[in-house]
């Protein structure tokens, strides 16, 4: 099984419990339907295993297969510059069948973002580099499609069920008790 080659750091988008025994990293693509299926699983996992999990999302947009995946990744990162990464992340996944430049702008407006700032960040070199760096770290870690999950640095066997995520998380969490 592959291992995570780039450790989780302060530059990663993180949510959940700091100091949790389990760090769950997802490499995902906002326009990938399988990631859309996994999205509510993650929400449920974070709610049910509140003290056990720190969740990290890294971008792995397959741009040729999913034409809006890259701009969606940038939009989430740009919202993150205003402290609303996870709100944007949720809205994008909840509307993943309707992603384009206009819908992404309307999500930013709905989140009450400073639109001038958003427009600048959305196209900024720095955020593009972040998305590309996420992608490259995924390639180096053996990510071969999305979503791919790592629990404490080890790639897990995810079979599109909530249970497969839950078991992977519980196995590590229990070892820490």
């Amino acid at each position: 099984m592959s291992t995570l080659k780039t450790p989780v750091s302060g530059s990663d988008r993180q949510t959940g419990y700091r100091g949790a025994p389990v760090t769950l990293v997802e490499y995902g693509d906002y326009q990938c339907s399988h990631c859309g299926i996994a999205h509510p699983f993650i929400k449920r996992l974070l709610a049910e295993k509140e003290k056990d999990i720190l969740f990290v999302f890294r971008n792995f947009p397959l741009q040729e297969a999913h034409p809006a995946a890259y701009i969606a990744a940038l939009a989430a990162e740009a919202a993150g510059q205003q402290g609303k990464f996870w709100l944007m992340h949720d809205i994008i996944f909840e509307h993943q069948d309707h992603l384009d430049g206009n819908s992404l702008l309307s999500f930013a407006e709905a989140l009450d973002l400073d639109m001038h700032q958003f427009a600048q960040d959305w196209k900024s070199e720095a955020l593009q580099q972040k998305v590309e760096a996420d992608f490259e770290s995924g390639i180096r870690s053996g990510v071969n499609g999305t979503p791919t999950f790592f629990v404490n640095g080890e790639k897990i066997a995810y079979d599109e069920t909530y249970e497969s995520l839950l078991h992977a998380v519980e196995r590590v969490a229990q070892a820490h008790r």
């Binding site: 741009q63 990510v143 071969n144």
Partner: peptide, 13 residues
């Protein structure tokens, strides 16, 4: 299809 999609994106690397 997944494998080729990943290579498509990794071409620049």
């Amino acid at each position: 299809s997944d494998q080729m999609a990943v290579y498509n994106e990794a071409r620049k690397l």
